[in-house]
Design a protein around this nucleic acid. Structure first.
Lengths: 214, 214
DNA sequence: AGCGTTACGTTAACGCTGTTAACCCTCGCG
DNA sequence: CGCGAGGGTTAACAGCGTTAACGTAACGCT
């Protein structure tokens, strides 16, 4: 009894066309449990079923398996990243400033959504559904968005000529940003330097300095 | 039947003082299974017990729980990193060259030991044993070793003055290196740039350029 | 020589997990 | 009115980590 289940005790059966409604409630309950436990392995099908007042097999009328359910929740969180990224770079004319802002936004998203981030990027790729392998993965991380920013930087002559093409640079940026994000997510009790926001901004600047012309 | 268990069919009981021998065999079998399955969750206590020809509860005579067993295996792999790191920087007088070599060695270690790396750095810190929280974690990642190299770089006037103190720089280096390593480990089927060794070396150089004086 | 202790390993079981097969009910349409 | 199908249930399987209670063989000691 994790104090989050709240039984809900046997909900009434849905009308004919209203199976979707339960589906949404299942997703919502899963998200709640994911937030509460902070671990996708800790949220069980039985707990989700209990939270929405239904028996475990009912879940399988709406989702093929647990992984699909978890990834649906995670997917919704990543849609938010997409929006936040776009908002962050919206008013910025300087592509370098946009790149820095995108990096900070990405890191902040990871900190605020640790478990979705964990599921997406810290689990082996053979236990993620096919559609998230990396076609969709690249799409969700806004790989294309960042790639565009990087290309803008290159076109503006701001990137060192020996840094490689836009794709290579983007992967490099992703690796750097992901590195700090994943450490912050998995080891939150590590003795990180005092002012975290400042440290993050400093890290981003220091990373970009290695890629940009002086 | 994963084709790795190999039954071994009920081993003979050990003599009085020779409990350690089974203990070693358990660790060896766990390591074998970890290598074969590539996932610590996929290696079960029952599979390990079967592999050494013993019943599951026997494992608990030698290890308090599954986590302790896994971490013992992982620990041994990290001892190897320690040695490889020292060997890599041994003959190098230039501290910057040493730092680059250390980074490449770390990344190579991650690629060659994906599951130990995953267990160590890609799982939430509250499911790692206390002694690996980060006192020992910092020790095992050779945090001290890298910190020493970074300090040498600072003393030699090779680090940008605004990069912060040695600890901050070391954390930053760790984050960058860990970022690429963890992506390579979790997403091996990502379309990485062609020559991987070259890409890694290029990545390291590009990272260091942001930290060092020109 | 025989007793007691203790290390070593066993059998049986608990409670949990994801998942499936088989069933029932009730709504809505023709 | 009947019937198909959507929506949900009960019962169960196989596997997991883990624990309690029990044997059993080997050693030290008197």
């Amino acid at each position: 009894m994790t104090s989050v289940d709240a039984g809900a005790g046997r909900r009434p059966r849905a009308r004919k066309g209203e199976g979707r409604q339960l589906r949404d409630e299942i997703v919502a309950a899963t998200e709640r449990l994911l937030l509460a436990t902070g671990s996708s392995e800790a949220v069980s099908i039985r707990a989700v079923a209990n939270a929405v007042g239904v028996t475990p097999p009912s879940i399988y009328r709406h989702f093929p398996d647990k992984t699909a359910l978890i990834f649906e929740v995670v997917d919704r969180h990543f849609a938010e990243l997409e929006a936040r990224l776009d908002a962050a770079i919206a008013g910025l004319d300087d592509p370098v400033a946009a790149l820095a802002a995108a990096g900070r936004t990405y890191i902040e998203f990871g900190i605020e959504n640790p478990e979705p981030y964990r599921v997406m990027f810290l689990t082996r790729s053979d236990e993620t559904p096919d559609e998230y392998k990396y076609e969709r993965l690249a799409e969700l991380t806004c790989f294309g968005t960042v790639l565009g920013i990087v290309q803008d930087c290159i076109d503006a002559g701001r990137v060192r000529p020996d840094a490689g093409d836009a794709v290579t640079v983007t992967i490099g940026v992703w690796a750097r940003v992901h590195g700090l994000t994943s450490l912050l997510v998995t080891k939150p009790d590590f003795p990180w330097p005092g002012e975290r926001d400042q440290f993050i901004a400093h890290y981003m600047d220091s990373c970009l300095r290695g890629l940009l012309v002086d």
